[in-house]
Amino acid sequence: MRAVSFESVGFSYPGSRQDKSSKQVFEGLTLTLVPGKVYVMSGPNGCGKSTFAKLMTGMLKPDSGRILIGENDMVWMGLSDIGKHVGLVMQNPSRQLIMQKPVDEIAFGLIHRGMQKDEAANVAKAALRDYKLTEIADTPTQKLSKGEQVRLAMASVAVLEPDWLLLDESLSCLDGASRSKVLDKVARLVRHGGGALIISHSKDLAYELGAIRILIERGGVSVVV
């Protein structure tokens, strides 16, 4: 299980054709996330929470500074290597679902990580039960409700056993039952030495989970234990 460190990371979005001004999101951001803990990142709308998630999964590259997984600089790692350490549930889960059938969705990563098809299908079926998704096993993934999509996306990522689980605003569209289901899984991952980063605009979540709170204000970051 490896720590993720941001070392004086700077990032800005370039201006677009309609919106000329470039937008500085982070400057000199330094932060280390230690495995075995739950972090909750909160902050006002538009402060850069999703940008942080994209940096941490290698979807965006920092303009300056570096991001390390363990000892390795992420710049030199491919997405498929980064994915071994960080599993992401996107803010809009429908975008990350790629297969038609929920079982295939969960098996996708297992097969690409070298598991035999039959075995992957068995693991996937068990995961469907585990995440209370058996009822929708025959529904095409794109027709699931948003809450079901979150659970499916989470199951597909969690079966790969990454060191880190990153949930980008995933809890806000879950009802009570599926929410506690997801939080159970997070707790289990942490017991096994992994880490979780939950992004949420709600400040209360950190207290509820007894998690370490990371507060992003525009341009600056503070960590509250």
Partner: peptide
């Protein structure tokens, strides 16, 4: 004001 709506964060888009 003046920002491109498609380039906002999702919370800002909701607003």
């Amino acid at each position: 004001a003046g920002r491109d709506p498609r380039r906002l964060s999702s919370g800002e888009k909701q607003l």
